[in-house]
Nucleic acid binder design. Structure first.
Lengths: 225, 225
DNA sequence: CGGGAGATTGACTGATCTCAACCCGGGTGG
DNA sequence: CCACCCGGGTTGAGATCAGTCAATCTCCCG
């Protein structure tokens, strides 16, 4: 139950003073979620921030034809649900657990009060939002202009940077081909074909969902980042 | 020189108290820009917010191959440059004047000070950032999943909603076909072909850059919004 | 062992891009 | 006054990337 340490080190709640920490922890506890579970869905009313202590959550929008577009993967230290909490609108994304997770919930009232009374916290939140905005803009331009191959290469690189690889250079995140496709913004079959092309070209190695990054420089080059 | 009224009514600076208003207006004046002028470019260091008093500014990223992707069109009351100001990073977009403009500059220091001392202002800013984030996410999903035709229809509708039409239902914004293409995320020729298809189908009328919206409901339907 | 989800492969289709030619109107300089 | 140029705007033809459809395969699980 010592999240305090984690929250104060790894999240936007870092540097909060004792009284503010108490505010957050008042009568509050973390909750566990299993792979596949939905935290909240598009159109839901969001009541506060969910801070990820453990696991991986995918944040996505379901398009007109039922296909999902993954907006981002959230990992420990990240917050989900903050946009809707701040604006008071209904959720514009769905969030599902990719890897068994543990989330800490912080009521919207508490957050808003913090924003109004703690300038540093407000600034932290603002920076977080602005960073997401930068990512979104980059992603937008990529999807609009790059080929699927370039985007897939880029996604692989970003996965490595966000979730690391083990000593074998194997990505430490397990995604279905469909999830990969929904990140890249393409069809599952296209991802499959391109992955095996990358394999044939010696850029990666595959065994099921394990993806080993063999030639990172070449992938970077391919991605035109 | 009475921007005060405008700022207090139409912008994130609304509801600021006298002392904060004074802070913003200290030794400050607006500046005029002509069509085609660049306010700042990708990679520039941004020193503060630019609040638009008059005109239209396009905010875009230039992709690897030199093609521009328009992220948004900013109009009176909007702010440009806030992302970089807040995070302290270099600009990740370029901003150019589409319609002769008048901008009011507010130094980053002043803004940051306001964020830290004025909770309501911080909240306003945060809401603004979150709204942009919602737009960005929607746009992302659209570009990833919709056809060019759907996206063009949607852009036309959004242009009408943002910039209105006159009594004749003519869009009150003048864009080159290339700018339109850069909003939709497609080639100029594709926009031209689709516009004339829309014209043949009786959805719009064209004369040069004037676009008259004839059948809005049908456009909405076409766009799958 | 049957069922189901995810992964793969092949064949086909088609939306969209690229390239290239041409048009049009306005402005400029000789 | 006219030829020329230049920035858009249009149109056509051809090439192709990438999506869809459908069949098959491979695990994994109960």
């Amino acid at each position: 139950m010592n999240y305090i340490d984690f929250l104060q080190k790894e999240t936007i709640f870092k540097h909060l003073e004792r009284k503010d920490i108490d505010l957050i922890f008042f009568d509050n506890d973390s909750k566990k979620y299993k792979r596949g579970q939905t935290i909240y869905g598009e159109g839901d009313k969001i009541k506060g921030f969910y801070c990820i202590l453990k696991g991986i959550i995918k944040v996505f929008k379901t398009g007109f034809d039922g296909k999902d577009q993954i907006i981002r993967l959230a990992k420990p230290g990240d917050i989900i649900g903050f946009r809707s909490t701040i604006t008071g609108e209904l959720a514009c994304t769905t969030t599902k657990v990719l890897e068994d997770s543990e989330l800490f919930f912080i009521p919207g009232d508490v957050v808003k009060k913090l924003v109004k009374t703690n300038g540093d916290f407000a600034m932290n939140l603002l920076e977080m939002a602005c960073n997401e905005l930068r990512e979104a803009n980059n992603f937008l331009t990529d999807i609009a202009q790059k080929t699927v191959k370039e985007r897939l290469a880029e996604v692989l690189i970003q996965l490595k940077r966000s979730f690391n690889t083990d000593k074998e250079n194997v990505l430490q995140i397990s995604l279905t081909r469909e999830d990969l496709a929904n990140m890249v913004g393409t069809a599952t079959e296209s991802v499959i074909r391109l992955l095996s092309e990358f394999k044939n070209d010696g850029l990666i190695e595959l065994s099921g969902r394990r993806i080993k990054i063999v030639d990172e420089p070449m992938l970077v080059k391919l991605s035109n980042m």
